[in-house]
Design a protein around this nucleic acid. Structure first.
Lengths: 241, 241
DNA sequence: GGTTGTTTGTGTAATTTTTACGCAAAGATA
DNA sequence: TATCTTTGCGTAAAAATTACACAAACAACC
């Protein structure tokens, strides 16, 4: 353990943290990964022990190349989830002078999208838990606010980026995709118009169906065509949902 | 002056700064306010002395309520320009481990839009200078990158917010407004379609013309109708330019 | 004072995009 | 076998976007 008072500066410095809003989708609801505070073997005295919070932690000044690296490292440490640095999108900075009772802490919030089915096994159930978007508990610090801003950022970004495909499994159906869009945008679409519009973009590839699904007519399965998406995008096309 | 080594922490802390990209518009070109580094009577040893840079400076840990307050305070100190805290929109965080040669410095970039004609007299010509967007010098630190990101953020936001009106004088003409949109979006519009679309939004109020203008047919003058804009917006309308 | 050149304002038809909507087939359940 | 839910498909109406031409205001020039 480091000796107290080891690091001195001529002027006061704030602590800087990165927080992570990790969104997942189980085919029905949008979910968020939260941790319970307290178990940490961390530097500073803990605060909000026992409460739910966003995963996150302190920037390591001489290790973390960027604040996104902090986010990735802390997410791994606190939840077991190992994501690439470029999976994190910045939400914004939260800097209210009293947002942390211990000392002045500025946090840079990020969000990330994961394929829930594929990563569910990786999340350390001891520390972390997936919560439905509609059933989020009260959170520590200003994390409620961060969560709201992160969601609104996701809602904006879905208009211009194919973020939906990062939340769905490799192979998915149109009704699944539509339901996801409806969950994020909080609206309802007409099934036929949604399908027409999606197909018009030519970014879906039909996949040969193997495993029939549950109790109704089996929907056609698709895969996101990233090659074509990148090609269209480089030709100046916009997604515009 | 504070004694050296006065502030100690158990773990290393980064310094945090706020930088400001202030955009103005002179009726012809988009402009940016820059300062020349060096004159500062600041805490830390200076870096990039004599080079051009974005105005900005260090968070005062126990004074600045939020990082936006830092931006406003530093802009005032360095350029004389006094803006309200809510005039600043966050661009993003820049945190590369080597972006400042002195110590680890995280900066939160902001942008602000001003009515150039009204504030030009306030800017301290000793320290600050307005540069045309098309003729920006090389900047200190990673400020070139920050500037590019700030501009792209402005470019995005103009689609959803009436940002154009923050850059124009109270009273302006349609050709001025169109030219501003073209400058920011880097496209050309058809004059008639632009006028039709704008008028369709019903956010412009015609103003009785008093002072005829320069060498051609005098254009009709307008004022931004904020009341109606807010009303339309609360009814769920979108600007969508 | 007339001519020329530049800038502004206006409206409509053609095209494209978005919206609204009905029906038949696939499979599950009773 | 009948019924229910879910999926896939296409078209007509409405709305938005685009393309486009001419006349009037004013300045500058002769």
């Amino acid at each position: 353990m480091a000796k107290k008072g080891q690091y001195t500066y001529e002027y006061p410095h704030p602590a800087v943290t990165a927080d992570c809003v990790v969104f997942g989708y189980d085919g029905k609801e949008l979910k968020v990964l939260l941790i319970r505070r307290g178990q940490e073997k961390e530097a500073s005295a803990t605060a909000y022990v026992g409460e739910w919070a966003l995963p996150g932690g302190f920037l390591e000044v001489d290790k973390d190349k960027t604040i996104a690296h902090t986010a990735a490292r802390e997410l791994k440490e606190e939840t077991g989830l190992k994501l690439s640095v470029k999976d994190f999108r910045e939400v914004g900075t939260f800097s209210d002078i009293n947002r942390d009772p211990r000392e002045r802490v500025i946090t840079v919030a990020h969000y990330a999208l994961v394929k829930l089915a594929e990563v569910a096994a990786d999340t350390d159930a001891e520390k972390a838990e997936w919560f439905s978007w509609t059933d989020i508990p009260h959170l520590a610090f200003d994390h409620d606010k961060i969560l709201r801003v992160a969601f609104s950022r996701l809602k904006q970004n879905i208009h211009f980026e194919p973020v939906g495909f990062e939340l769905l499994p490799e192979v998915f159906t149109l009704p699944q995709l539509q339901h996801l869009y409806e969950s994020i945008l909080e609206v309802k679409f007409d099934r036929r118009n949604f399908a027409n519009k999606m197909k018009h973009y030519e970014i879906l590839t039909e996949v040969a169906d193997e495993t029939p699904r549950h109790g109704t007519r089996t929907p056609v399965k698709y895969r996101f065509d990233k090659e074509n998406y990148d090609r269209l995008k480089s030709n100046g096309f916009q997604l515009e949902f």
